[in-house]
Amino acid sequence: MGGDGTSTKLSGPAVLSRKPLAYAALALWVGLLAATPLLGDNYTVRIAITIAMFTAMALSWNFIGGFTGYPSFSTAAFFGIGCYVGALAQRNGIPLVVAWTLATLAVALFAAALGLIILRLKGHYFAIGSIAVVEVVRLIVSSWGSVTGGGDGLNVPLLQGGPEAVSAIVLYVMLAIMLAAFGATVLVDRGRLGFGLRCINQNEDAADMVGIDTTRYKIAAYSLSALFCGTVGAVYASWVGYIDPTDSFSILLTVKVPVMALLGGAGTVFGPIVGTGVFVLLEEFFWANFLEWNRAILGGIIVFLIFFLPGGILRLDYRRLWRDLLARRARQRSAEAAE
């Protein structure tokens, strides 16, 4: 693993994951998000919820897209199914927490079954297949009116308490999911599974040869990438009180989540957290200031990301950047002195 560009695929996590500083920063970040109900108004809390929610999904995507290197775009299918299972369960009188659990399990099972089929595909075909899954599920949900309410959507029983209490509850639940996803990431990263997944990322045939059960590993990664999205979806449905197919299965969501993980650094432990934080805050800023152009600006961020931050924020060599900056300063100064 020399310093050449190709090795970045494998060597990510060594940069930050074992440093206590990174954990301290994470604790501070979670603390800050958790304190928003005390510090800010409802708008700030909403941003904190959005960050926690998308961080959980970006961390989830990281299992399949980052560690394993499979370009999955099926996040919206998992999220949407989570929304609908949670909503339908609640409408049928199942208690809240049970409904959320049910949604989580249903999505994980769905992903495992689906993975059995589409994880046989690779590269472009896998990408297309995973996008098609979102479309198929969306179309089925919107045409199955008798159960899902079709295009009219579904009302979900609202949480008890005033708007502030509800936001606080949703925030803490989302933060808990985010931390669970993070815990799973750390375990996978350090364990056998993570090692196997990285091997598959590097060379699937070789991984198979040395005795890694690639099918089982990939399905495990795919199910992990679905699990927390299902919970997030169900909690989201309870939070907003109304879901419809276009909102739940949006193609924008399915691309946004990988972009967040990429922004921080795919395949790293902390990358998705950093990427999501930066992305959501930028998005919020652009929504507030350039409403009409927000989509183009997000597109611009993506283009910028691909060209200038190909490995994500965490993979930048900051020491080198700093050295270059100092060197440039020194050169400027010597040039001035020469004049």
Binding site: P71, P258, L262, L298, G299, V303
Partner: peptide
């Protein structure tokens, strides 16, 4: 680059 990169790039351009 891998499909993830090219697909994401064209998606970004498409948004614009």
């Amino acid at each position: 680059a891998p499909v993830l990169t090219t697909l994401t790039l064209t998606f970004g351009l498409d948004m614009i």
